[in-house]
Simulated scan of single mutants.
Amino acid sequence: MENGILTEGQQKDTELIEKLLDKIVKKKGFENICANAEGYETPAKIRRGKDNDEFFIPDVTGEVNGRKSYFELGMKSGDERQLVTKWRLLSTIAELKHGKLYLAVPRGHMAFTNRILADYPIKAEVVKI
Rank of each mutant, 00 (worst) to 15 (best):
E38V: 15
N65Y: 12
K27T: 15
V127A: 04
M75A: 00
I17C: 02
Y102D: 06
N114A: 08
R88V: 10
Y40V: 15
A124H: 05
I46R: 00
Y70P: 08
Q10G: 09
V84T: 07
Q82H: 09
I93Q: 03
L101R: 04
A35L: 03
I93Y: 01
A104P: 05
K100F: 11
K128I: 14
V127G: 01
A111N: 13
T92Y: 07
N65F: 11
L20Q: 06
V64L: 14
Y102R: 04
G74N: 05
T85H: 07
W87S: 00
G74F: 06
I122D: 08
G62I: 07
K128N: 10
T42C: 09
N3P: 01
K12M: 13
G39H: 08
V64Y: 09
L20S: 07
G108M: 02
T113K: 03
Q10V: 08
R107Q: 13
G29L: 12
R81D: 15
E63V: 12
L21W: 06
G108W: 07
V126K: 04
V105Q: 00
V25I: 12
K123M: 07
T92P: 00
K76L: 14
D59R: 11
E41Y: 09
A35M: 04
G9F: 10
A94Q: 06
I17W: 05
K123Y: 02
Y40S: 10
V60Q: 03
G108Q: 10
D22K: 08
G108T: 06
E8F: 05
K23T: 14
R107Y: 09
E38H: 07
E54Q: 13
G62W: 05
A124L: 07
Y120W: 14
D59P: 04
L117N: 03
P106C: 08
R48C: 10
Y40N: 08
K28M: 14
N114C: 06
K45F: 07
K27N: 12
K45R: 15
G49P: 03
D79S: 10
K100P: 02
N114V: 08
R88F: 07
L89A: 09
T7H: 04
K27R: 15
H98S: 15
N52P: 04
T92W: 10
E95T: 11
Y120A: 06
M75Y: 00
K86Q: 13
D79N: 15
R48F: 09
M110L: 15
E8P: 01
D13F: 00
A111W: 11
R107A: 12
E54H: 01
L73C: 02
E15G: 07
Y102M: 03
A44I: 14
E38T: 13
Y70F: 15
G66W: 08
V25C: 00
L90S: 00
N52A: 08
K86C: 03
L117S: 07
E54C: 03
A44Y: 02
G29N: 07
I24E: 01
S77I: 14
L101A: 03
G39M: 04
A124D: 11
L90P: 00
E38Q: 09
V25Y: 02
V126F: 02
Y70H: 02
I93V: 14
L103M: 05
V25W: 05
D119W: 02
G29K: 14
D53E: 12
D53G: 06
N36L: 14
S69Y: 05
K23F: 09
E15M: 11
E95D: 13
A104I: 14
W87P: 02
L6Q: 02
